[in-house]
Design a protein around this nucleic acid. Sequence first.
DNA 1: CAGCAAGTGGACGCCACCCTCCACTTGCTC
DNA 2: GAGCAAGTGGAGGGTGGCGTCCACTTGCTG
Lengths: 224, 224
Amino acid sequence: MTSTPDGAGLRVDAERNRQRVVAAAREAFAELGIEVPMEEIARRAGVGVGTLYRRFPTRADLIAAAFEAKMRAQAEAARQAVEDPDPWRAFCSYVEQMCAMQAGDRGFTTVLTMTFPTAKRFEADRERAYADFAALVERAKAAGKLRADFVTEDLPIFLMANAGVLAATADAAPEAWRRLVGYLIQACAAPAAQPLPDAPAPRQLYRALLRATHPQRDRAPAKQ
Amino acid sequence: MTSTPDGAGLRVDAERNRQRVVAAAREAFAELGIEVPMEEIARRAGVGVGTLYRRFPTRADLIAAAFEAKMRAQAEAARQAVEDPDPWRAFCSYVEQMCAMQAGDRGFTTVLTMTFPTAKRFEADRERAYADFAALVERAKAAGKLRADFVTEDLPIFLMANAGVLAATADAAPEAWRRLVGYLIQACAAPAAQPLPDAPAPRQLYRALLRATHPQRDRAPAKQ
DNA sequence: CAGCAAGTGGACGCCACCCTCCACTTGCTC
DNA sequence: GAGCAAGTGGAGGGTGGCGTCCACTTGCTG
């Protein structure tokens, strides 16, 4: 019996290749996004595509392996923010950190605002981070610093917005996202100037996160 | 000598087909985005791809034809906002209208935050709208309603952000974008709570708008 | 109503990417 | 060091989009 979820139990050469693939994937995803051709990753890793598919039968498997560490780091950031004694600074710095992580990695930008059916591995970190963020929100509201109508669902919205700016400006204006985040953070400050439109229901938002990498494929109503 | 920029001078059947193609393109772009396969558009129009390419040799040509009216409508909205006697309401309603137009049309979302080398046709409207928007900004600042550090380059950033939310939520949470816009508008209200990170330079932003539909193709550094 | 330029559509060649399959190589075990 | 399960890589079949080309059709002109 070989091959546990990760590399343990593999032959040493196989394990070495596996790690090369993951490293290449991290690099390629960061640079080119999670839709980068599998062949590009194999090329960077110096292995054949066959090898890559043997170890990671689907793209989602590879994504899970490539971003596991970053997902944990992300959850860690939430945990650290909770430990910050200043509620408002904690809130701001967490939001900023998330956005900064997006700015540094095209692939992570997508992964943060998307959930993969397969990637159960991410769920634990996601939930941990979610709980910590909820705590941050409560604390900042209690301190009178965060507007009372802020809801946790707003964070994913901010991240999606940031993703949009990054997608458009990454190469030409790599600092533009900071401007957006500046506006958003300031808009979060108490007191609420005006009521806001309703936030999407958690279920809706969850469905939005679930959207597959490729929105929809088939589509041939055969008009006429 | 036939075929002026638009349909004049074409044989009547050809002109009818041309219009069908444009109508089909509008529909398909709105629904599926500007990357929809040419074949899908031809199918919807009930013509062969050959006919489509004869009239619109490149996708950009078709995009230009399909969105000409909306671009004009967009510029018109700016003009109307300028005529609103209330400076702040004018500013807000223009920003909201732009975002709403994005929400209603996947293709337009992209077109609004992108400029096509070929699409000289859009430039006039874009510049007209830009000038009007600059006037809105000045007026709202003068009235003490818009924060002094707002710059016109912020509008494209907002639109890119909105595009990101729309891309992620369009199907599952179609109202989520309103929440984002709510935050953004309120963040624009005077006085500036905190300084903002610098806005990108106009030139940078222009380069960002120019990014091709397909970010970059070739790419084979042949590592090793 | 004849003649022809204009117009048509879809088959086709091309290319990028996906993923599988299998003849060959290689580490590990005894 | 022999034997073999594990591992390898890349050729190749499948799919889907692009854009061209050309034999056929059709409106227009005289």
